[in-house]
Amino acid sequence: MTEEVRCTIDGRMVSVPAGTTILEAARQVGRDIPTLCHHEALTASGMCRICSVEIEGARTLVPACATVVREDTVIHTRSERVDRSRKVILEMLASASDVSEAPDILAYAETYNADLSRFADGEKRTYDIVDDNPFYIRDYNKCILCGRCVQACGTDMQFTFALTTAGRGFHSHITTFFDQPLPESVCVFCGNCVGVCPTNALQPKQEWLLEQGANWDEIRAQTKKPRRH
């Protein structure tokens, strides 16, 4: 028998097995909490903070995805502080990256009344599209630095370690060893990073070529696997 812990989420008493996260507990009682960096198959990194919730008596908000329910806590999934944080994070994200192909962000923006052009004067993170292999393209203009690709490439899935976050602060970015092209890196083109990318920054090359209006012959020519010697 696992031990049960009780808490209050938005006024409702909830009892869950010890070790359950606030995110899981809230979903059990039908309270949805937005998430961006969170992915079922990956370790919760708690980086994006869009899932921040308020616990009564706590100094700061806590990330629901990475915080385990503790006995007798009173949790609010919506509050003035929670809503402001979510709104401002979304507004700042949209000012830094191209979120046009990130449906979750667009939907959350509606919910939290985020003005996605609020910080439009700010510096945008702009990059050239990286088209260095037949399998997928990397458009880091769309990257929100959720870190899922690095996790999938590393200890959460593949143990390949081709990707890293480089730089720091606003100018953090995802790259390879000394920015080398993927075919020269240890990448094995497993595709796990593409699978977990939430914003289409990583996209299968065929799909991307189709969107660019390429015909089938062009697509076949550009996505041919390199012959092994």
Binding site: G154, A166, G167, T176, F177, F178
Partner: peptide, 30 residues
Amino acid sequence: PDICQLVGRRLDVPLADIYGVIDFYTLLYR
């Protein structure tokens, strides 16, 4: 890069990680 490859191989640290570390700290130069 080749110093990093030597260090990575001998200390058992993935190359991408070494690059991420160097690029993080302002007193390390690439």
